[in-house]
Simulated assay, not measured.
Amino acid sequence: MDMLDRDLLFLVGLVFFPLAFVALVSAWADRRFPWAALILVVLGGLVVVWAQLTHPGGGYDWRTIPDLLIETAARYWPR
Rank of each mutant, 00 (worst) to 15 (best):
L38A: 13
G45Y: 00
A36L: 15
G13L: 02
V42Q: 07
V25M: 10
P18Q: 03
W35D: 15
W62P: 04
S26Y: 14
L11S: 01
L8Y: 03
A23I: 08
R63A: 14
M1H: 09
I65H: 04
Y60I: 01
L38D: 12
V12R: 13
H55I: 06
D7H: 02
A27H: 02
V42H: 02
D7V: 02
R75A: 13
L9E: 12
R75D: 08
D5S: 08
P66W: 02
L38G: 14
L68H: 05
A29Q: 07
A37R: 12
L24Y: 15
L46C: 12
A37K: 09
Q52T: 00
D61S: 10
R75E: 07
V22H: 07
T54F: 11
R79L: 03
W50M: 09
I39V: 14
W77I: 11
L19P: 07
L8Q: 00
R6I: 07
T64D: 15
P34I: 01
R63V: 10
A23V: 08
P34T: 05
W62D: 13
L19F: 12
V41D: 06
D30R: 15
W62Y: 14
L69Y: 08
L46E: 14
A23N: 11
Y60K: 00
W35K: 14
M3Q: 10
V25T: 13
A73F: 11
V47Q: 09
M1Y: 10
A20F: 04
F10R: 03
D67Q: 14
W28P: 07
V25N: 12
R31C: 05
F21S: 11
R79A: 12
L38P: 05
D30E: 13
D2V: 02
A37D: 07
W35P: 06
A73Q: 07
A20D: 02
G13I: 01
G58A: 01
G44H: 05
A23D: 08
L19V: 12
A36K: 11
S26M: 07
V25Y: 06
Y60M: 06
G44N: 04
T64I: 07
L9F: 15
F33S: 10
G13K: 06
W28D: 15
V48I: 08
T72D: 02
P34Q: 01
G58M: 01
R31Q: 11
V25G: 12
M1I: 08
R32N: 10
A51I: 06
V47G: 11
D30N: 11
I65K: 03
L9S: 11
R6L: 15
W35I: 15
M1D: 10
Y60P: 03
L68F: 00
L43V: 15
A37S: 12
G57T: 06
V42Y: 07
L11K: 01
D61Y: 15
S26F: 09
R6C: 06
I39R: 08
P34V: 00
H55K: 14
L69I: 13
I70M: 11
A73V: 05
Q52F: 00
F21Q: 10
A73K: 02
P34K: 01
L38V: 09
G13D: 03
V41F: 11
G44A: 04
F10P: 02
Q52Y: 03
L40N: 01
V25R: 13
T64N: 14
